[in-house]
């Protein structure tokens, strides 16, 4: 079975490490970035199957990253999971417009995140 590639972007190094470890332990290939700009560049080079990104990052926010990806050829439909520690959730409309697959509020469970990644990749493979 082909190894699926996940890009994890967060400016909190501990979060990146723990998410990456959980995914790697479960057979995923993980690439990481600690800011939005780097995340976009790595996406273009590595072409991941799914992106897990923090909402609030220096340089480029998670939403700005998704907006840029959506306007880039080859990433129009890439599944995205947004992690956030913000007090207020993003607008439902914005979530739908940007086709954000899942929106997880911090603190989150790595197990729960893993299950979302697996389910989203499964359903995207079927469609």
């Amino acid at each position: 079975m082909e190894t699926r590639k996940v890009l994890v972007a967060d400016d909190e190094i501990h979060i990146v490490q723990v998410v990456a470890m959980k995914l790697r332990n479960n057979g995923f290939e993980v690439i990481t970035a600690d800011n939005g700009i780097d995340a976009y560049d790595r996406c273009c080079v590595e072409k991941p199957d799914i992106v897990v990104t923090d909402y609030q990052m220096p340089g480029m926010t998670g939403i700005e990253l998704v907006e840029k990806l959506r306007s880039t050829e080859g990433f129009e439909d890439i599944p995205v999971i947004i992690l956030t520690a913000r007090g207020f959730a993003i607008e439902q409309d914005q979530q739908e417009d940007l086709n954000i697959a899942e929106y997880l509020s911090k603190p989150f469970s790595p197990k729960e995140l893993l299950s979302h990644v697996e389910n989203i990749l499964k359903s995207s493979a079927v469609s």
Partner: peptide, 25 residues
Amino acid sequence: SHVSHELKTPLASITAYSEMLVDGE
């Protein structure tokens, strides 16, 4: 929003690493 973000960020690490320890990861 700021307080929530600032409090949740370290809390997210604590929760995630505790779970990893409990799950023997």
